[in-house]
Design a protein around this nucleic acid. Sequence first.
DNA 1: AAACAAAATGTAAACGTTTACATTAGGAGT
DNA 2: ACTCCTAATGTAAACGTTTACATTTTGTTT
Lengths: 344, 344
Amino acid sequence: MEVNIKEIARRAGVSIATVSRALNNNGSVREETRRKILQIAKENNYKPNPIARSLTGKKTNTIGVILPELVDEFFTDIIRGIDEEAYQTDHYVMISSSHSQRNIVQTLLEFMSSGRVDGVILMAPKIRKELSELIQKSKRPMVLLNSCNSNNNSVCFNINNYQGAFTITEHLIGHGYKNIGMIQGPEGNCDADERFRGFSDALLKNNITIQDSLIVSGDFTAKSGYYGFIRLMSQSQKPEAIFAANDMMAVGVYEAARSSNINIPQDVAVVGFDNIYMSRLLTPRLTTVHVPIVELGTKAIRYLLKMIKNEVDANLPYCEELSTGLVIGGSCGCTNFSAPTFFK
Amino acid sequence: MEVNIKEIARRAGVSIATVSRALNNNGSVREETRRKILQIAKENNYKPNPIARSLTGKKTNTIGVILPELVDEFFTDIIRGIDEEAYQTDHYVMISSSHSQRNIVQTLLEFMSSGRVDGVILMAPKIRKELSELIQKSKRPMVLLNSCNSNNNSVCFNINNYQGAFTITEHLIGHGYKNIGMIQGPEGNCDADERFRGFSDALLKNNITIQDSLIVSGDFTAKSGYYGFIRLMSQSQKPEAIFAANDMMAVGVYEAARSSNINIPQDVAVVGFDNIYMSRLLTPRLTTVHVPIVELGTKAIRYLLKMIKNEVDANLPYCEELSTGLVIGGSCGCTNFSAPTFFK
DNA sequence: AAACAAAATGTAAACGTTTACATTAGGAGT
DNA sequence: ACTCCTAATGTAAACGTTTACATTTTGTTT
């Protein structure tokens, strides 16, 4: 039989208010009384009902996490970053993702209006008008991930795609490559746009003219990488190096190179972005950009919790970009590279 | 300003009980009254407070999902299967995974005692005594995934690892291989044990003696696959085919083969288990066992919801195994295989 | 002992909903 | 018009906790 606060109070010979005070260390309770109450609570396995607490205190200690999809290690890394921090702070993580039956807007509306969550972490690579308005109207603290919200009233945490793309492109340039091609990510996708911008600016900074014929579009899938490579290498002017805007497309590039008997990096250098697990399985090991996904999740929830606790003003915009790092394999042409070889 | 049920009642000129009845279609409400109430609720964007509902109704419409880790597409597939079904049935998904700061037992205790979830889906590949006792004492409906709980009082959904391993081993035997090696999964891991059992029984059924020297252990990582292969091929008696107990170990096998200048399948055939995304990137394409992970999640939550709604007796044991399918690549020696080639 | 202040505790109500049971309204039959 | 029954509605309490404010107890000072 479950005991409630009334029963604990009866057994301790005090009022329910005193039990509450003792359990919450809130208000004055004589130490002796407090010890007695805690003892009786323990003997009876009593824990305050979190639902009743939520009703009274208007907080659920739950964070809503809205993801655009749930398909690979990127998403498990994000969830993991969030989950571990949630645990440290006695919070719970409610997950929801877009799928064929539901989109982000519906999910956000649901979370925002329902009182089930104290705040939301929203990953939305594309922000359309409707979503932007919702974010504005949000009455609950919200943190955006990887979002180019042109409205500067929001709080967001992003990977510094620009810097990563800039750096890796400069790395290619450092190898002496001049004809550098790029397989872009999906149009309108924030990450993709920033990676292209970093790529472009690195070329400009090094007085290399951007050649449109060396830029093809992709959609972050291996397949688009495969066909992007085929297109690039079918031209009269071929690139000597290719920046694939994510590693999965680089996987496709490797596959296309293999089936075309083109050697990496001897015939064409290839670099990627993301440092997904698979990239370390490619031969030669892919040179890529490492992105701190787990940390992204961790920082997002930390800031969100600060907003929830009014430790920071939820109406103040805040934006932080997590820097990336180069992981040097052999695919760019480096021979003494720093990335650990796969086995031994 | 948020309106509550009292305000809606006031505006509609009825009692709060009538508003509740109208919104819940519970008890008699004149149709005209009902329409009026729904109209006013809509105009005021009123939704019942789910926390208050939970307190009264003793249900949160939330499912707890406890995972042993959060590392790859296996877990996103499970979550996705659960999430999509949860949405269909107006339920929410609370995620928790084991990590360095927390183990499964703590998490289960937390979910079971706190009233935040109506039921739990627990994935635990190894069930130790403490956990087993907890599962027994569970006062809330629980569904196990991929668990060999020798206690038959539970509800579980598993992949039929035995059947998959049996079938794929028979497939190798069908190719004429007699010296068939295996790289096992982690000791005590339910999936791993069943896969070994299927492998063994297929050999026995086909009058092939199991040779201990052809069995090496691994831990489901690519690295253990790599070293397992090295060991197997360093022996005087080498296998002509290898069953890697999961695809990730098969990836390691491919890598080891490549660095040893051993050809797959000409020198040694290789098959895996899982049909992870990576397996389709290997050349030749890996022959493997497809496991319906999304479906596993879907079925688990469906049954759990039935238990929660008392549509099935939560005290009745139930176990279902989802069958697997063969995905034929070229790694076993098949030349006219059915798996789609990677790109055209 | 009396006065005052601070600590400790209790009472009552709040939070927002659902629902058992009481009461009222409406309809049907005589 | 009266009686009876059912539909519709309302009242009060429940759910389990927190907390504002009232009351009591304790400790200190004069």
